[in-house]
């Protein structure tokens, strides 16, 4: 496949002492990053109950202990599972429906002209506003979260697919038509391959959105999930629980971003 672009390290020509020299080496970089984190946590620990009441800000050690307890007694897993399931299911459904709709409207311009105002109207609506309605219709269980994630994802995939089809070089289509390709052959051999990079881009972007949608859905109304965990602890005015929940979300986001960056690095587009 196409060569992968190399990431470049720009070296600053002249000799620089101290900090600049430290961060140009990999261990140095890691140490400096760690120092920032450590400094922040140390300050937090110090400030807790000295500068601000621990009722509001808890403290890193307390949060750490709570996390260890959650993991130790296994009470975290059902929540984690609920969030990831809602996100995963909603994402898959949303991608499938979004891509299908995008392809269908892309291939049927007449249909697109008729239906587009409705689609744009729905797109303009902040999807979160649908959450209460989804809870009423689908209940407080995971179903309403799956639906919220799916609705969010559908539009992202729909628009990237449609944009992809509209961006296809008309000359390529004409070339194949002149060779005698049928309509369905033009779709299979030109439109779909040309649109795939757009679909992949949409799918990558949608991962982050569907995670957010799942958590927000749980914050609004749920009986399980990491979002629910935060919301429930907030209801009890338990800052430690809230921070621990937020920490779990941070870890998940970082992990997801890492995975996505890896995938993006591998997927060098070949045109």
């Amino acid at each position: 496949m196409a060569p992968r672009p190399m990431s470049m390290t720009v070296s600053t020509g002249g000799q620089r002492g101290g900090f600049a020299a430290l961060v140009t080496t990999l261990p140095g970089l890691i140490i400096s990053r760690f120092l920032i984190l450590f400094g922040f946590l140390a300050f937090w620990e110090f400030a807790s109950d000295r500068l601000v009441s621990k009722f509001w800000v808890s403290s890193p050690t307390r949060i750490f202990h709570l996390l260890v307890t959650w993991i130790g007694d296994g009470s975290l897993w059902p929540h984690l599972e609920a969030t990831l399931t809602a996100m995963g299911l909603g994402y898959v459904i949303g991608c499938a429906v979004g891509v299908s709709l995008g392809l269908a409207l892309g291939f049927l311009p007449m249909f697109r002209q008729v239906i587009m105002p409705y689609v744009s109207g729905l797109y303009a609506l902040p999807k979160i506003a649908l959450a209460p309605l989804l809870v009423i219709v689908l209940g407080i269980d995971i179903g309403s979260k799956v639906a919220l994630v799916a609705v969010t994802t559908v539009f992202l995939l729909f628009y990237s697919t449609l944009d992809g089809i509209r961006d296809v070089d008309r000359d390529l289509v004409q070339t194949l038509r002149l060779m005698g390709a049928s309509r369905s052959e033009v779709i299979r051999k030109v439109l779909i391959p040309a649109t795939l990079p757009w679909i992949f881009t949409g799918m990558r972007v949608a991962v982050r959105y569907s995670f957010t949608a799942a958590v927000v859905g749980e914050l609004i109304a749920a009986n399980k999930g990491v979002g629910y965990l935060i919301e429930a602890n907030a209801g009890l005015y338990d800052a430690t629980g809230v921070f621990a929940g937020v920490f779990v979300i941070v870890i998940l986001s970082v992990a997801m971003t890492e995975v996505l960056t890896r995938v993006e690095g591998k997927k060098a587009p070949n045109h």
Partner: peptide, 19 residues
């Protein structure tokens, strides 16, 4: 107007794949 996602071979043969 070569198809960017096809190799040289696959570009050359495309017309013979058509029904």
């Amino acid at each position: 107007t070569l198809l960017p996602w096809r190799t040289v071979n696959d570009n050359i043969g495309v017309s013979l794949e058509l029904s």
